[in-house]
């Protein structure tokens, strides 16, 4: 039962990824315009054109070209960046940790703030505080991360400049790290000086990314909590002598959290999508910032690679959330 479910999900994931690869390929190759001309950096020589033609097999049919490209991708060969002349995969993997850390930090912030809002709103349901939380959530949801980023830059970069609003870390500290996962590494090595510098840079972009998701979590979790609070087993727990806080956290939360969890899965991919513009806004050296540079420089192999990696990330996250949902729901697990 469970194995079958997982297998089906894996298959659809594969189909989706295949579809993504086709769409990327088609967008870049079939749209009007000479692909070679588009791939050329300014000042290319005829020899360059020759080389590119051979490299991508442009003399063959579109279908053959696709399979050549796909074959490479499957083997981890995403081609060579036109701008830097380095393998795309290496470039992408070099930037991925920065984006992942930013996204995970934003997720944590969103869950903490959203969870706090939901629990507070449930605890104080029917009061003006709950109304204020509702209104705040509605506002936070209406405004996209791009604007939240700008607002935070103004507030904490200009009006009250306590945070850095540019970059991932102070440049002179980069050589202190052995891996690309700066944040994790600083925590594991207990280098809180590095951690502090990272946080001063990352907190604002992460918060900008987190605000809409926090509002969604706050809204949905509060709604399911409030529905759960009316159920008989919650009432029964009250007669056992438990107070409101305990009842909310132990009896209601676990049952109310499932819809929120599914939603967080979908929303987390949206959040990662948001990193593209937020990284640009905060000059944060991640995948999204590199993608925009690649587009401006017309570095199409690099763009292809980044888009594929993002799609892979998205589908894998959806897969994980689906599995998590199955594990956390005892009825599904035993059903």
């Amino acid at each position: 039962m469970l194995a079958r479910r997982i297998l089906t999900r894996l298959l659809t994931t594969l189909v989706t990824l295949l579809g993504v690869s086709i769409v990327v390929f088609v967008v870049i190759r079939v749209v009007p315009g000479n692909p070679i001309a588009m791939m050329l950096p300014p000042g290319a020589t005829p020899a360059d054109i020759e080389r590119l033609n051979a490299l991508y097999g442009f003399d063959r049919s579109i279908l053959a070209q696709y399979f050549i490209w796909l074959g490479g991708v499957v083997q981890g060969d995403f081609g060579t960046s036109i701008q830097t002349r380095q393998p795309v995969l290496g470039l992408v993997l070099g930037r991925l940790p920065a984006t992942l850390e930013l996204a995970i930090m934003a997720l944590v912030i969103a869950v903490v703030i959203g969870g706090f809002l939901a629990l507070t709103g449930t605890r104080l349901r029917g009061t003006a505080t709950e109304g204020a939380i509702d209104v705040g959530n509605g506002m936070a949801l209406s405004v996209p991360v791009f604007l939240w980023g700008l607002v935070l830059i103004l507030l904490f970069g200009v009006l009250w400049p306590v945070f850095n609003i540019s970059g991932r870390i102070s440049p002179h500290l980069v050589q202190e790290f052995h891996t690309r996962f700066f944040l994790f590494e600083s925590v594991l090595r207990l280098r809180f000086d590095l951690w502090l510098d990272l946080m001063r840079h990352m907190l604002m972009p992460a918060l900008a990314l987190a605000i809409p998701l926090a509002a969604i979590i706050g809204q949905l979790l509060k709604q399911s909590l409030k529905e759960t609070m009316h159920l008989d087993y919650v009432t029964l727990a009250r007669t056992k002598g438990y107070g409101e806080n305990h009842v909310i956290v132990r009896e209601a939360l676990r049952n109310a959290i499932l819809p929120t969890l599914t939603l967080i899965g979908v929303q987390f991919t949206f959040l990662i999508g948001g990193t593209v513009i937020i990284e640009r806004l905060f000059s944060y050296e991640g995948l999204g910032n590199m993608a925009i540079d690649a587009v401006i420089n017309r570095d199409l192999p690099l763009i292809q690679g980044i888009v594929i990696i993002f799609a892979l990330l998205f589908t894998v996250i959806n897969l994980i959330v689906d599995m998590l949902y199955t594990v956390l729901n005892p009825r599904l697990r035993h059903g």
Binding site: D232, Y233, L236, A237, T239, K240, P330, R331
Partner: peptide, 15 residues
């Protein structure tokens, strides 16, 4: 203590 009305809803499904 309480003996509730509906045993189907009076036990927490996730505990």
């Amino acid at each position: 203590a309480l003996i509730p009305q509906d045993p189907m809803t009076a036990l927490n499904p996730s505990r």
